[in-house]
Design a protein around this nucleic acid. Structure first.
Lengths: 226, 226
DNA sequence: GGCGCATGCGGACTAGAGTCCGGTCATGGC
DNA sequence: GCCATGACCGGACTCTAGTCCGCATGCGCC
């Protein structure tokens, strides 16, 4: 259901990097030393990830069964499910690494995405960049969000994005920052993005411009009636 | 996948009621006389719907299998799937009737939901009422939206809600009416609503107030920067 | 270096969604 | 009223996600 990628590299999941953004996201973090990952477990985890990545790339996320992933990785199904709670969990694990880049640019990169710019502009930049990220990883994100109902709202990554949006909206003095953050992220769900891009054949850049504009509206300090 | 409820009562699905709302939603409508539903088919359709309704009420949507629905209705699985493309389709069919009321109130009911009020206010009223509808039918709506990825955006009912929001936003002279309509509806997806209500334990009325306020902001004619 | 045990492993098993196809029987034309 | 047609019926079948439990083994302790 959620991230379960215990193991060495999860240590870097201590996402509260020392930076200007004054919040800390609580993510499942392995307390190294308390529980060490066994050597065979680590080896198998890497194998599974590699196998999944290759198979997904070759035949698409939908065209690959969990049995195949297990077989290709040379691992039993039990092992597969022990580590990655379900197919969505596997997607989350694969996505994890690819999200790092965007997260780093948000936390420490140059404006307008990174710290320094006006919060509303940062929000607009985030919307555009996140949209582009979803577009590039569409199948994986879709899987991670729809594997189980509500999955979208439970991943560690989602907590990060939400926290970031809330922070920016609060900084911008927008009313109901939490609700508005959820609203924005709901519209960036893989399902919706895929519909805009593939079913309605909207242009990615136009969409980014449009959504950024709406982000600016949502970041306004006060509602205005005519 | 989508609505497939052919049959007599679908005739009333000719949703373009003679009213002040100047749009017509194209829904799968049975052209009576061209194709008549066979008597046995109609009987079975009713049986299935009744059985599903009862079972869902008794044991919850998740606790009922399609086999059980078929068995209880005294019908084979093939028959079940012929009519209701998948489990989500069954939910759509059950929802269909319950959505009518809201749709009628939108098209011909009193303001602020119905015609006559300011478009922005109508939009706010719609958001509140739709939210309440989703809350009451949460399991069914969730099923209908998540049975298959993208299902949410493909139902006839969704086309209706979207069309209505677009119309109101256009009337209100809001920029990007189509995008804003999708944004609003995305945030009213069952998944999100359930999360707000059940996981975060938000109060339904507070949520309605909050979302209505955001609807008003989105219906503003021009974005304003400070 | 050896021992005991917690942890991890893996494949057989279950369950439920959705498909298929041979048989049946309303329906409309004559 | 009878017949040809094709829509309809139903249950056996497939396919895949996810579970379970006995066995193996890495790891910390003595």
């Amino acid at each position: 259901m959620a991230t379960d990628v215990t193991g060495p590299e999860s240590v870097s999941s201590t996402r509260s990097v020392g930076c200007t953004t004054p919040y800390r996201v609580d993510l499942p973090v392995l307390h190294v030393g308390v529980v060490r990952e066994r050597a065979d477990a680590a080896r198998n985890r890497l194998r599974v990830l590699a196998a999944a990545e290759r198979l997904f790339a070759e035949r698409g996320v939908e065209g690959v069964t969990m049995d195949e992933v297990a077989a290709t990785a040379g691992v039993g199904k039990g092992t597969l499910y022990r580590r990655f709670v379900d197919k969505g969990g596997l997607a989350v694990a694969l996505l994890d690494e690819r999200e790092r880049d965007l997260q780093q640019r948000i936390l420490t990169g140059p404006p307008p995405l990174g710290p320094g710019a006006d919060p509303a502009d940062r929000l607009a930049a985030f919307v555009a960049d996140y949209l582009s990220f979803v577009d590039r990883q569409l199948d994986l994100v879709l899987l991670s969000e729809t594997a189980t109902p509500g999955a979208r709202l439970r991943t560690g990554a989602h907590a990060f994005w939400r926290q970031h949006c809330r922070y920016l909206l609060r900084e911008a003095r927008a009313p109901q920052p939490d609700l508005r953050a959820d609203l924005l992220l709901a519209s960036l769900a893989a399902d919706q993005v895929r519909h805009w891009l593939h079913d309605e054949h909207r242009n990615l850049d136009d969409l980014a411009v449009g959504l950024s504009a709406i982000a600016l509206v949502l970041a306004q300090p006060h509602p205005r009636r005519t």
